[in-house]
Design a protein around this nucleic acid. Sequence first.
RNA 1: GCCUCGGUGGCGGAACUGGUAGACGCGUCGGACUCAAAAUCCGAUUGUAGCAAUACAGUGUGGGUUCAAGUCCCACCCGAGGCACCA
Length: 946
Amino acid sequence: MERYEHGEIEKKWQKQWSEDGVYETQDIAQGKENFYQLFEFAYPSGNLHIGHWYAFAMPDIVARYKRMKGYNVLYPVGFDAFGLPAENAAIKRGVNPRDWTYENMDHMRMQMRSMGASFDWSREVVTCDPAYYKWTQWLFLQLYKAGLAEHRGVDANWCPSCKTVLANEQVVSGLCERCDSAVEKRQMKQWQIGITQYADRLIDDLDDVQWPQDIKMSQKNWIGRSEGAELEFKISGEDYKLKVFTTRPDTLYGVTYMVVAPEHEIIQNLEKKIPNIKAVRDYVAESAKKSEIDRTNDTKEKTGVLLEGIKAINPANDEEIPVYVADYVLGNYGTGAIMAVPAHDERDQAFALKYDIPVRHVVAKKVGEIASIDLEKVGSYGIIQNNEGKFLIQYSKRVDEYWLPGGTVEDGESLEQALEREVVEETGFSDFVNGNKVSVVVWDQYSHTKKKTRRNVCHAFAVSLSSKKRVEIKMTQVEKDDEMVSKWMTYDEIDAAIKKQVNKEKGEVMMLLLDTYVKREVFAKDGVMINSGEFDGMESEEAKKAIVEKVGGEITTTYKLRDWTVSRQRYWGAPIPIIHCDDCGPIAVPDAQLPVELPDVEDYLPNDDGRSPLAKNEDFVNVSCPECGKDAQRETDTFDTFMCSSWYFLRYCDPDNVESFADMEKLKMWMPIDHYSGGAEHTTMHLLYSRFFTKALYDLGLVPSSEPYTRRMNRSLILGPDGNKMSKSKGNVIDPDDIVEKLGADTMRLYLAFVGPYNEVSSYPWNPQSIIGVRRFIERIWKLQEKVGDGGTKASDQALHKALDTVTASIENYKLNTGVSALMGTINVLEKEVSITKEHMTLLVTMLAPYAPHVAQEIWEGIGHDGYVAKVQWPEVDATLLVEDEILLIVQIGGKVRDKVTVAAGQDDAALEKIALASEKVQKFIGEKEIRKIIVIKGKLINIVI
RNA sequence: GCCUCGGUGGCGGAACUGGUAGACGCGUCGGACUCAAAAUCCGAUUGUAGCAAUACAGUGUGGGUUCAAGUCCCACCCGAGGCACCA
């Protein structure tokens, strides 16, 4: 037996596959269904790393399997060759980005061939090739002509280090996604794409795709849809209306002030009416100086300035309320102005506390569920805390119940008056200072004594005692009967006590009242309307619509998603195919003149002035207007590389087409993509952009489906042996070329498959021992060839078919690791046999072929087969072989395993019961006890209940 | 803070619709072969107690449902990711 020489074997077959065009895909294959398996194409960064292997070689296992399963599989490959990463790397080395990119691609192609993956290289797509970007430009112009692209002044994200504008998605918590520099705001005229017009569909259509929950949620969060209403507040004495967006129109009666963002136009428009305009302007200037990070970072301390001389009018009750300017309100979200409800919004409460603005509760928490209310009672209760932190509680000895001091409000009394009267009567403490209202709870209960339903509106006030002076206690008869006493109790004592009391609801109400004070909670949920005129008693959810209707507001939706800025002030990108004419405005370059080729230039370095390096190239810039023929200038910005990658998967379907970006008939053959795998970092960038692109093109009748990817899966990360992310500076980088050389591509593929489930996002440290174990496994298969002879056992048949069952499911579900385990388990059985048949070995290498294609092919040939194992039919499981002759019967007593008995399969329940009861161990445990019940799970388990 | 997904031996991870927890691999320990080592092969390996048969405990924590819970329900703790002064 020759030794297993991975190097020779792998090179030999890679050459053969390539020469025979084994993996080239036709658009139609007789009798086969098409299957499109896609991975994210690579940036030509220079060198293949383990991450590339994980990204390209794992889906290859699935592609190979699907091919054997009888599908016509498209598994294409290409390069995302334009853009910042390549350009920055080239600049760093002082080489031209074009040369750098093309050299890198050559090198990477070579490395990728060493994976032994079944890529169809004949369909390769390179985005910086004019034959490709001609269509990127053309597609952009289709969007432009459809009103989905516009050159407009924007508050752009400028990266001072990359010297270009970035899209919102490329700013990660205020920093440039590529270089981590702090992003600045610049007013610039930029090309934007109208992705926001598709916000709803981008969210709603997620229901129809088979994507993992987390990816869907990330996209939803990013789009940030929030449903609410726009309401108008008149400015007193002015012909001016302040429009606000709110998700809580039900709290309109609780509005005690308003806030506008520093950028808000009201400051300009009504500046003559604002006596303190100087202070206001200073504040606006101050907040303009703050960077985005500063402004969103100091979330605790809120600042603002009152707009003196201006009063807004609450449309619900015509009350006049003050207006502030404060930077906790953002200019670019909603309407840039809010109605502030300190009782029901945390931020508003913080601001109100600082500037001493009244708080008005208009929604109460509700306890109890009762259909109709017979009578209503309003109560006023005190949260009274002494300097030891204990609370004053009324305790009824008779019914063992706790409650706050206070009581029912009588006719003509205010809440405060009632509270004072009741507390003095019940507790005798008389020197107290009325505090702030802290909360309101509506408690609906059924009174068994009165046989009526009752609503208790319980108001709670935080009250402090100025002295411990007590006067005579005047209890009511009921209170006397209940043996009421006052007690000082800690929060924990109260919490423990009410858990034991019979009336749980009453305890809950008290804790709610108390919690609001103790935990300083702001009640921002749904409840029952109070203090809201005709809406009192209504459920707040219902009141939303009713109040919007009453004040003539409008139900609206806002989004966090912003339009996609696609201009980049950089050289290495596809030129934006637009000509600016003084008379005609921005004009699309006529189709016949596409592509607008990226010229070769001497100076490709980016500038600080916000203009692309192409702007210096007069030959490029100066053209005549395609409309009127006058002198005009080309757009000199280039496209965001995400434009190029938003449609590359369409080009794979028809890569050589010179008439169009892709023929509709060919697109229909392949789209939508059956499975797409890639990195989690693209969830709210490429994945969102390409979904938008597909939808827009679908609406223009250019593509056959409105979603590009039926299934999507984010891949895990392979870490260095030390558990950290691989990086040159940490010195923990594993070079795949080394592994291929020392252990072979098949070992690498199997190792990566074995390391953990491919369909879950996690991170796996590189384990140098473990990969040797995998290599050992291949060598054991290799040696198994020696055992191929005439004889073979049924045990081998069974082991192989059991594995086949697992391997098939494993690949279908992208849990590639369990398939490798199953194969390992099989050879543990086969190795113990004296001899196995050629059929056994054939089945084994057929299953191995998707995982380790080289060695599988070599053995395939070695045992006397012609052609390619990659082209054979995936075997069917012989179900009869999965049936065991004997089973291991688990005998439980009361759910605990007490015995395991090997019995003949296929016996009926009664027979199994008999066997179980005959067991000595079982008898020992049962003893004298009576058997209450016996549960039999067919072919598996018996549970005897005693 | 809100949303989503997770938490299983020393490690990576198995466990179908509730039915033997820890498959498979790594590591560790013991043994065989060898003058010795590497490689290879064989055996053991969740913890505690015990010479052992065995018993008890055990899937983040605490409750619950069930004949039976890693799996289902409730509450909480921890981790990862997304959003975040977003009204």
